[in-house]
Amino acid sequence: MSTTDTTRKPKFDATTTISSEFGIFGIPLSEQECQLVMLPVPWEVTTSYGKGASNGPRIIRQASEQIDLFDFETKTAYEAGYFMKEISEEINNKSKNFKEIAQKVIHMKTEQSDDQATIDKLTAQVNQASRELTDWVYTETKKILNAGKLFGLVGGDHSTPLGAIKAIAEQHKDGIGVLHIDAHSDTRKAYQGFEQSHASIMYNVMNLPEASRPKKLVQVGIRDFCEEEFDFIKSRSDIKTFFDVPTKQRLLKGESWASIAADIVAELPQKVYISFDIDGLDPRFCPSTGTPVIGGLSTDEVFFLFSTLAASGKQIVGFDLNEVSTGEEEESEWDGNVGARMLYKLCNWSVVTNNKK
């Protein structure tokens, strides 16, 4: 049965309709009526391998209407209302324009061009555009938070949530932790000269000014990183990384995922922001993602981790979902479907952990 059937949503006014173009999951409520509001960020300027991450918000929204709203774990959490804002064509166009510039830089470096002046000039343009994107995300996030809404971000590449994490960390002065699910550590100081690369998001997050910086970063699924990143992680007492290899070794030796999930949650403070790069999953679940890596988590393991986090009594104060991509195609129905279902769980658990009595 279609999720737009209002008999599935007993607390919604059956006379209220809203175009799916400006909502999500077929929920017929306006932004003002919804407890949770999502910001789509169609940006993929610094990606260097696969492409199509800027299409993530669109394909997730398209797939979202196929989801049955009642959820076995969170029951009718959706009745709080979820809304995704309109996808910004201005941001999308800037992404296309500056990605062309970034690709030129990457090509010149690959070809070992001796025109360093041009490389430096173009790199500076990309870095400036990325800073402006971060400022835009920060401003838009503050608007959503100031309206009293729960917040989610839908990317885009994984560079997109820097401004959002900054805004949420500033809102919660008692401190937040970031639960980072990813194949990559994303702790490079810069990548290919780009200071706000998708490969640098967590380096940038953990080097924000103290008032804007999470007090703990907990990483899960990490299986692709350089020596520089490994050294950075080991140098920081406020970072705990559950690397994929030792995690899988624990499982292969007979330890339960429940035990590992409990260890992960125990590392987090009371307030948690979830930053989810879809390539944290085994690539069979989202094969079009830009930088797939063998190994990783199953959807069931991620769902169990979310439920363990909720059962611990901790509060999800925001989240992002990134790198759901179309690859070389304009459409990717399977990736959009998986992304929509992961996003729905993030929404549900956010509401549940904030509405506990």
Rank of each mutant, 00 (worst) to 15 (best):
K51P: 02
L36P: 01
L39V: 03
K96L: 14
T47N: 09
V45R: 00
R8N: 11
E31R: 12
Q66C: 09
I18T: 04
W43A: 14
G26A: 10
R58L: 10
E44Y: 02
S95G: 15
T6Q: 08
E31K: 12
K96Q: 14
A77C: 10
L39T: 01
F98C: 07
R58F: 03
E21V: 06
Y49I: 10
P42H: 04
S54F: 06
T46S: 10
V41E: 10
I91F: 01
A80K: 09
K96F: 08
E100Q: 13
R61K: 13
L69Q: 06
T46I: 05
F25I: 08
E100D: 14
D68V: 09
D5M: 05
T74V: 07
T3G: 12
T17Q: 11
P28K: 02
I24G: 01
F83D: 01
I27H: 01
T74Y: 15
I101D: 09
V37A: 00
G81C: 05
D13R: 12
K51M: 12
N55T: 09
E31Y: 03
K85D: 13
T4V: 14
E21Q: 13
L69F: 06
T76V: 03
L69K: 02
S48L: 04
T74C: 14
N55G: 13
S30T: 15
T16N: 14
A53C: 13
S20A: 12
G26W: 00
E79F: 03
F72D: 15
E33F: 02
Y82T: 07
Q62M: 07
S54N: 11
L36T: 06
N93L: 11
S48M: 09
R61N: 08
T74R: 04
T16F: 06
E65K: 10
T16R: 12
S30D: 08
E33C: 03
P57V: 04
E79V: 02
E86C: 03
K51D: 11
I24M: 08
S19M: 08
Q66D: 15
D68A: 12
T74E: 13
N55H: 12
P10N: 11
D13G: 09
Q32Y: 04
D13K: 12
T16I: 10
G50D: 09
M84E: 01
F22R: 05
V37N: 00
S19I: 04
P57G: 09
F22G: 04
D71M: 05
S95R: 00
K85H: 07
E73M: 09
A63L: 03
L69E: 07
P57L: 07
P28T: 05
I101G: 05
T47P: 01
L36K: 00
M84K: 00
S20N: 15
L29P: 02
S30L: 10
Q32C: 01
Q32D: 11
S2T: 14
E79H: 08
N93Y: 05
T3S: 15
P40F: 07
I91G: 01
G26M: 06
K94G: 09
A77E: 11
F12R: 10
Q66S: 15
A80E: 13
A102T: 02
K99A: 15
K99W: 05
K94P: 01
F98V: 04
A80R: 05
S48Q: 12
I101Q: 05
S19Q: 10
I24Q: 01
P57R: 03
S2D: 15
G50L: 07
K75H: 13
F72Q: 13
K75R: 14
D68M: 09
T15V: 03
S64P: 03
N92C: 05
A63F: 01
Y82K: 02
T17P: 00
T4H: 09
I87Q: 02
